[in-house]
Amino acid sequence: MNSSVSMTSGLERQPPCLMLASPILTIRGAEKSFGDVRALRGVDVTVYPGEVLGIVGESGSGKSTLLRMMNLEEMSDRGTYHLDLPGREDLDLFTLDRFSRRMLRAHHIGIVYQNPHLGLRMNNTSSGNVAERLLMAGERNFAVLRAKAKESLDASEFPTARMDARPSELSGGMQQRVQLAKAIALEPALLLLDEPTTGLDVSVQALVLDTLKRLQRERQITMVIVSHDLGVIRTMADRVMVMRNGEVVEQGLADQIFQDPQHEYTQQLVHAKL
């Protein structure tokens, strides 16, 4: 049981015994301070292969800092981070230098940001944006790059007839699909989604979520999704972590968090949903 979880009722849960696979992601004791502000206070995260973990919490709860840590953009002041990658199981990723972090991220972690400017070069072609990820991993053959980029765009349900359009010419929903295509191009061990549908029209949001859901179903991609939108989390997540003031106040199966929230804060959050 996560040491930072305070249960107000219910029983202490046991360690897994039927789930035989090792966790794909294990973070222990993540801490982060920005000046006097403690953004994360000893957070533990465990994600199993094929799972979708949702992280909810209001602005300033630390959820985005935690996601950036998973993406190795932000280093923890303390604690450890392991990904279950062949031959790297024992490597604490928080100890890596900048270059190693970048290589690891390129090969094994995909991310979709709320703001496409963070994830894409807006004036490169869409296919070029996806190919960039493949180039970083060492692919040099132009025909292969283009074919793989097309395949990835297609899997993200991007209309491949427009694969040479620049993201700056595309709608918000399409920009998210290009980010997604880039993120999954190398079949990452972990796909991180930072408010992936925030700011999109509701109908476009539903389409993007549907694509994510389908990808998850067909490829069993392990995902961590951060959102303040409980509807998105409810649609996507198997398990949910609720964060407040840099701490995990509660975690559980998605239906339990929404139907029987234990912590006072989670109850407020769930009951405030329209």
């Binding site: 046991q14 360690p15 015994c17 789930m19 199993y48 975690q251």
Partner: peptide
């Protein structure tokens, strides 16, 4: 397995 206290991932699997 005791469903009352089983780990969330085990419940998911079941």
């Amino acid at each position: 397995i005791d469903l009352a206290v089983a780990a969330d991932v085990d419940i998911s699997l079941l």
